[in-house]
Design a protein around this nucleic acid. Structure first.
Lengths: 342, 342
DNA sequence: GGCCGACGTGTAATCGTTTCCACGTCGTGC
DNA sequence: GCACGACGTGGAAACGATTACACGTCGGCC
């Protein structure tokens, strides 16, 4: 592979001049510039990003550590992150933690070793020493979706409280009184927050949230299945199951189906996170939709602000309820909320 | 951030010795080793991967350029690729081409500039000059899922021919005679191959595949919707629509639903690529399942073989038909093929 | 006509590693 | 007792870029 030296030799100038042409430094004569450009073209030269990074101490790369790539919500997040980053001249290295703290740490370490310019992360747990060290060391960082309390890092997330309230009102109006939730891990903010929002919304209607109706999941389909089976085995099973993410909702559907029961007649179902497939499931699933793309873009902008020396602020966008048929009594068709893709 | 010099100074040895300890070079005294290790620990030193890469000319990084991250098939592929790569000591940079050749080229260029050790790619088109150049320059490369004919690069893919034959036999047995396909872009191998396999399977049953029954899609949901609407507008609409990927099947469902028609009563549907959601759609969708995880792992192994100087061979694994209810007449329940997650 | 600033260019240091080579100090074998 | 090999170590040169600094040349202005 041709190096800057080859270009310099071929153009009859010094490497410094080549570098200046490449970096659009003003003080280069038109003559030198054309000769260099011609040599670059002829040799098919491309600057070595590794060498450049070593010298300039910037990689123009963002690290993104997400909890689970198989979760469509995070996939969409990753996509919008990459898009916005590309628009701003950065590339993205994605690490998939699979909801496992040790894999998360592996990725964080790896990204730090590669000297990424900044880190976007949706923490799987309460924060490992490694991550806290990175924050302390001044690594530009932004939390997205989930965050770690007490750590001074901007957070970009959706606030689902209002939507959860709308959901509970909807369920209450349909006559449901025994509502259960499949929660995410308590170590994640989204795990505990959604339970709290649910509990508060229930309280507003004078409904309790008994412990038996709080199932502990881990945001994966299998846990949704397991928890739902537990609910169904209860002497008095809930009338509604609210899954704190879309994969656990999938697991819940599996469990209900395995028993030969029907949604919503035998048990109603709702989910946090809306995905295109919810339109076509049997029945279509009522869900709380996050502005996922906007979250990803906002997170990148915040991180790049931080990297480039500006100050980055936290962002909270609101989620909204999308009513379908999985909780009973089909509402009037709404052509907008029923579009399956965006 | 502490550098190797700091460690050397702190341990009272030269940088060469530190480097030797870190790289497990044998000729280091036990005494020096412990002093270095202690210094590393004390300073929280981590080698700078950028500098190391510059010197050794290897990044221990693989590039993966996929056609569309939002497609669950590619997501799963990406996940298995990353997992296997991690197991072999490599990390992965994913580029999402969104089925657009110019974005694909952007990612390829970017990855090449970063001096990745090898490239895993599922080409969106017939091969840009850039990619052909990279092949000619000897960049270790492996095609996965799709490939470019006439280019000497190992291919790891699923052969769906038998499964398509099984599908057509299944459809024929159900009494369907007018079968249509939503094809992928002709520039992709999976785009044209699936049509050919379908045509051949139809011919074996003495069935034609008229041009009007070949809809041109682009592997995205929207095109599935558009093509399906076209089919439904035909004077004699098909009895079955076979979508060449899962997203176009989603679009087809959207279109059928928008007309108030029902699957499979009014029109049957089948898809290439199986995904967990197909179990829970209304109705569950008959699909051809690829061994996605195995494909990803095999692709990584082939690429790493090539990188580390061994020879890499092409791999073709077989796909299989998973019958559900979207083509009519429910088969007996099969607990294995109906599990929604793996 | 001389001085000074602007301009274009090249030399060389630098980023953090790895690794070749040379060197000193042993222990061993004759 | 001497030669020699093995071993542990350090110095210094790379890798491919960027950039501070110095230098020569030219034009304009007094």
């Amino acid at each position: 592979m041709a190096s800057i030296k080859d270009v310099a030799a071929s153009a009859g100038v010094s490497v410094a001049t080549v570098s200046r042409v490449l970096n659009e430094h003003p003080s280069v004569s038109a003559d030198a510039r054309t000769r260099v450009l011609a040599a670059v073209e002829a040799l098919g030269y491309r600057p070595n990003a590794v060498a450049r990074s070593l010298r300039t101490d910037q990689t123009h790369t963002l690290g993104l550590v997400i909890s689970d790539v198989l979760n469509p919500y995070f996939t969409e997040l990753a996509r919008s992150v990459e898009e916005e980053a590309r628009a701003l001249g950065y590339s993205v290295i994605i690490g998939n933690a699979d909801e496992r703290p040790e894999i998360q740490d592996h990725h964080v370490r790896n990204l730090l070793d590669r000297r990424i310019d900044g880190l976007l992360i949706s923490p799987t747990d309460g924060g490992s020493p490694l991550m806290l060290d990175a924050v302390r060391a001044g690594t530009p960082m932004v939390f997205v979706d989930r965050w770690i309390p007490g750590v001074d890092v901007p957070v970009v997330r959706a606030d689902g409280r209002d939507a959860v309230r709308d959901l509970v009102a909807h369920l209450h109006a349909l006559g449901h009184r025994r509502l259960a939730i499949i929660a995410g891990p308590a170590a994640t903010t989204t795990g505990s927050e959604r339970v709290e929002a649910f509990r508060a919304a229930l309280a507003a209607h004078g409904l309790p949230l008994p412990d038996a109706y709080i199932g502990q999941g881990d945001f994966q389909a299998e846990s949704g299945r397991r928890v739902t089976e537990g609910f169904l085995d209860l002497p008095e099973p809930p009338e509604v199951v609210f899954a704190a993410d879309n994969l656990m909702a999938l697991g819940a559907l599996d469990a209900v189906r395995a028993r030969g029961l029907r949604v919503p007649d035998d048990i109603a179902l709702a989910a946090f996170d809306d995905i295109p497939w919810f339109v076509h499931t049997d029945p279509p699933v009522t869900a709380i939709a996050q502005p996922t793309g906007e979250l990803g873009r906002a997170a990148v902008r915040a991180l790049v602000d931080r990297i480039e020396g500006r100050t980055a602020a936290s962002v909270a966008l609101s989620a909204r309820l999308v009513v379908r048929r999985s909780c009973g009594e089909p509402p009037a068709e709404n052509p907008v909320t029923n579009r399956s893709t965006s």
